[in-house]
Design a protein around this nucleic acid. Structure first.
Length: 418
RNA sequence: GUGAGUGUAGCUCAGUUGGCAGAGCACCGGAUUGUGGCUCCGGUGGUCGAGGGUUCAAAUCCCUUCACUCACCCCA
């Protein structure tokens, strides 16, 4: 086969697609309870949107975006969205909400694109479910989002590790950054090659190096550089979520790769996912709305990695109860005609009904019924048709009896109740 | 971008020292006129990832290349 799927892109079949849809359905239900409304935004934006928000120093923008020229005279450079937040902020400003009605909560769901080397839990097209809150600077808002994530976790029956940190705000963050930079330069000779690179590009990432663990642990901590206000904000967030029953740890090494994060940042991981174990991540981004040309409105948000969530769920889940599955077997043209009507009637019950190919023998059709995991087979042939009846076969029990057609739906419903 | 591992039937994989390409599962048919699973019998199905080299002879040895997987990196 020559026309295969692209590297890092996937076809999701059957249960894989189902699990993903299930996670999204549960998340949507939660949004309703939290009063968060949906926002649908484009998958394509000007490249500058990401350069200015996500940041040129992030690897996402500098190396991983799918970009191309539009067919207009100006040759505008477009980018497939690598994440959702910039687009949501742009839409929020464009709708004038930053001035008219700044306090807003949105959720979005859809595919993101990053051209990375694929591995377990990491794909070039992947789905995120994200929440963004604007116009709220108070710690109760941070806490509410974390509780929201914990609600989803509990609803799905999973165990996660919540790790939180605070990076400080525009006033105190620079001092911390300078301290890390200074620390890195002082220990230059002991740093790994990747860390040399990091120091140039994004010094804070020194802290989550997995090679120089000892050095990273002894590096300056953002928590020690917080101003009184940031300190109080963080303490209140921790107090609130603790009181609400969220289990968490403070991890001073959580720094996010995106430029716009400040104050509260968090990463939520699941074991049994391999190396790519972050299922949810996010943080506060006061200042981002202003950077993109809006009013000075605070913001905070997170994104769920849907494929990773589905992976975690598949490792732990018990299958959900499905509709009883009926294989409808018709023998002969007249029976097919009748069966077409019966199928419609049974599906309305509701029952899951699949009509098998009447071109094949009864034996082959029953074999097929077994293969697809049907609970019952309903057989209609010329003999049954003459009596206005059908054979109702219980494939699990291997028992069979004749049922008149006008009683069939009721009989199957009764069997379902058992 | 870097590293490692794996590529043989639709799937999971054997294949010895270089000597006729195999098994299990799945699929199709039969044993059983209109009755599945279990059993038995038969059948369909192969560019041994691709290209080149060595050899009387290559799935096997050598070179090149591609794909997939995992990890680094990055991050959801």
């Amino acid at each position: 086969m020559e026309l295969t799927r692209l590297k890092g892109f996937q076809d999701l079949l059957g249960t894989q697609a189902q699990t993903l849809a299930y996670v999204e359905a549960r998340a949507r239900l939660l949004m309703e309870r939290y009063g968060v409304s949906e926002i649908k935004i484009p998958m394509l934006e000007r490249i500058e949107l990401y350069q200015r928000s996500t940041g040129e120093t992030s690897e996402i923008v500098s190396k991983q975006m799918y970009t191309f020229s539009d067919r207009d005279e100006a040759g505008t450079t477009l980018a497939l969205r690598p994440e959702g937040t910039p687009g949501v902020v742009r839409a929020y400003i464009e709708a004038g909400m930053d001035r008219s009605d700044p306090e807003q909560r949105f959720f979005y769901a859809g595919p993101m694109f990053r051209r990375e080397r694929p591995q377990k839990g990491r794909y070039r097209q992947f789905n995120q479910f994200g929440v963004e809150v604007f116009g709220r600077a108070d710690p109760a808002c941070d806490a509410e989002l974390l509780v929201m994530i914990d609600d989803l976790r509990r609803d799905l029956g999973l165990e996660f590790q919540f790790e939180l940190n605070s990076l400080g705000h525009a006033g105190c963050r620079p001092a911390f950054r300078a301290a890390v930079l200074e620390y890195g330069r002082r220990h230059w000779d002991e740093l790994c090659r990747d860390c040399h690179e990091r120091l140039e590009r994004n010094p804070l990432r020194l802290l989550d190096c997995k090679i120089d663990v000892r050095l990273a642990e002894q590096a300056p901590r953002s928590l020690d550089y917080l101003c009184a206000e940031c300190r109080a904000h963080f303490d209140t967030v921790l107090d609130l979520i603790g009181a609400a029953g969220v289990r968490f740890v403070v991890n001073p090494r959580i720094v996010r790769g995106l430029d716009y994060y400040m104050r509260t940042t968090f990463e939520i991981t699941s074991t049994n996912l391999g190396a790519q174990n972050a299922v949810v991540a996010g943080g506060r981004y006061d200042g981002l709305v202003e950077v993109l040309g809006g009013a000075p409105v605070p913001g905070i948000g997170f994104a769920i990695g849907m494929e990773r969530m589905a992976l975690a769920l598949e490792a732990a889940r018990t299958p959900r109860a499905a509709l009883p599955r009926i294989a409808l077997i018709a023998l002969g043209e007249a029976a097919v005609r009748k069966a077409t009507q019966i199928a419609r009637e049974l599906r309305a019950m509701p029952l899951q009904v699949e009509m098998l190919s009447s071109e094949r023998s009864l034996k082959a059709q029953l074999k097929r019924a077994d293969r697809i995991g049907a609970n019952y087979a309903v057989i209609v042939g010329p003999d049954e048709l003459a009596r206005s009846a059908a054979q109702l076969r219980d494939l699990g029990a291997s028992s069979q009896r004749e049922v008149s057609l006008d009683r069939l739906a009721a009989e199957l419903s009764a069997a379902r109740a058992q």
